[in-house]
Amino acid sequence: MNALVFFFDNAILSGLIIGAIYALGAIGVTLIFGILRFAHFAHGDMMTMGAFLSLIFAVLLQSMGIHSPIALAFFGMFPAMAATALIAILFDKLFYKPLRDAGARPVVMVMASVGVTLMLQGVLRVFGGVSARSMYIGSPKAIFQFHLPDATRPIVLTEPQIILFVFTAVTVFALHYFLTRTRLGKAMRAVSDNPDLASITGIDIRHVVWATWIIGGALACAAGTLLSMDVALKPDLSFNILLPIFAATIVGGIGQPYGAIAGGFLVGLCESFAVFNWSILLRPLEPMFGVDFPSSLAIVPTEYKLMIPFVILIIVLIYRPTGIFKGKVL
């Protein structure tokens, strides 16, 4: 029983946590990919920027003398989401729109987004330094333990993890409502589906582009903040988080927000299953099989965690480039 609890904590739960982060990031990437038709390389640093903004707002709240049982960073996240969305639109105006208007090929936009990501990285590290910091100012992180009857080991959930799950669930429902019930949401799907027809139909592409950056930016900020609350705010996230997010996007099918969510959880769970030490789960079964399992039985050593999204990506590209939800192959 202890082994099962350990498995639940370290494989399933940790997979779901990182999966939720990937999903929140991948929704933005897939919408940008579907509507603006390029892979947005600046998404990882946009997440870091969002986390920094949340921290700044949290410090502001603290200095105003506000206290709360829930971490201030969480309350700081909402103004930070709005700010990140605005900055995303600003970036579009400054860097992407001029290229779009000049009829640049999508791959030039990819390059521009690499330029943007480097600029963000530079600014964040100049002002924020290069060391990791805690998002918990003031109050410490609350930890909840759930004891199961047969186990001595508890199921452990921390405050940011609970916030993350609730936030992700609310986001998924809100996004579903937005995309299927509102005029702008449907227009976004229409543009992603068939941009030429959308412009013939008189859909205002500008609004759709704005909506895309608002959703993408706000969710990137949320993902960055929640990840930093769970672990720590690290300014060097960038490319390491980008690869699993792209993998999630492509696995889910480009332009498919639900696919991105599924892909995010899939990649997250695969990662945690791959580095999980299966011998812990198998050892109680040793008498049954009458064999000794080696003490470490992870599929992939932790150092090579980054291999997992990459391998998933390669397998999908070879065998099913449209992804599980039949996205576009651009």
Binding site: R189, A190, D193
Partner: peptide, 25 residues
């Protein structure tokens, strides 16, 4: 209104959503 020869529907939208998009303006 203009109906192009090819790719003249939003394939992933439902029929009704296609019609609603027609009234977007």
């Amino acid at each position: 209104a203009y109906v192009p020869q090819e790719n003249n529907v939003f394939a992933s939208l439902t029929v009704e959503e296609n019609l609603e998009m027609g009234a977007y303006t």
